[in-house]
Nucleic acid binder design. Sequence first.
DNA 1: TCTGGGGTCCTAGGACCC
DNA 2: TCTGGGGTCCTAGGACCC
Length: 422
Amino acid sequence: MTSLFALVDCNNFYCSVMRVFHPELNNVPVVVLSNNDGSIIARSNEAKALGLQMGQPFFEAKPTIDKYNVVYFSSNYTLIGDMSARVHSTLARFTPNVEIYSIDEAFLDLGGFKGIVIPDYARTIRNTVKKWTGIPVSIGVAPTKTLAKLANRIAKKSEKANGVLVLTEAKHLEAALKRTDVGDVWGIGSRYATKLHSFGINNAWQLANVTDAFAKKHLTVVGLRLVKELRGEPCADLEIEPPAKKGICSSRSFGKPVTTLDDLKEAVAVYASRCAYKLRQQKSACRVVTVFIHTNPFREQEPQYYNTKTINLPVSSSSTIELVQYATMALEHIYRDGFAYKKAGVYITEIGPADGAQMNIFDRVDRSKHASLMLTLDQLNKSMGKGTVKVAAEGVSHIWEPKAEFSPPCYTTRIEDVLKVR
DNA sequence: TCTGGGGTCCTAGGACCC
DNA sequence: TCTGGGGTCCTAGGACCC
């Protein structure tokens, strides 16, 4: 049986979400900003046409934004997450084998489908997602994931494809590979693209035709797999069950510079608490906690400081109380007076199953008590709303909170916003 | 004034061991 | 000229993704 993968990708997802709730923004340039309203992370086609770049600092883009009346929003992750779930559950109607690849992308396994016309089926999926969620998607179908990605890119850009491209015939595959720049291949970033150009390899077709030895030598075994996938040989299957994370990180840039240890402690406690929560959600525990802090590298004239501290836990844990304690210890170790800090973060690693935690005879923590406390905390926060219950160290002043001055309301979760009442 | 956050995988090289 | 060789573990750094 020959394999067949579909990649479904939401078009300009964050912008499209805004348009669902603001239909008047159709055909109007729209951008969505990163945390702290720092830079552009999503652009509508009209915004792309104005030359606005992905990752471009907001202040730098502001003149263009003002000149062309570009509409801009802060990110609202609750809203985005909710719309993402709607799209993914719609896709699940079309095949049991779905891999949720990212917030706005999914791979579908169409390999075993008999008696259906694939291009028609793909178009039905596209129309249904649009009708049920309001989100426009593009669909690429091909024998490997890498080729499905490539087909998707063309489906999105080509007027003729109109959002759907199925690449199964050799001559179509060859033409598609020849018109794709090597740097636009999934897995080839800017470094590898430069390197490949220096060897005269400029498009995906040329990359598909290098020797295995060349691929391995210059692009490692990852690149060798990629090259095989370009030739139509599948090297990656669908990942239907998301694997447990091996590292969990929570970090943010601050809304304004932070100078005191007390404020940093609050922020680090909040991040450690988020890590602990994510850890419990996947029923894991960690053995290592790392904290990092740094000043603003863009302010070159100001004194710079960057440091990290890693602490090995005596016994692996997923308790917010414990992780906050260790993260605070780490922070105290690296904090230096006299700097304006821009960002802090907590990173936890050495993650394993919660019930497989190694015992330690010197362990003085009552683990069953902690576990039941955390269970209660998670249940309360789930039923009464995020942040209802937290540990004291997380504080309340939060002068370091990121900025989000252009936030859209939570249309999908707040009835007041849906009904437009005040 | 203003520059995101959260991940994965691989390799090279050093330390250490027998 | 030529200084043992092979295995494992760990870490730092590099590359990529959305």
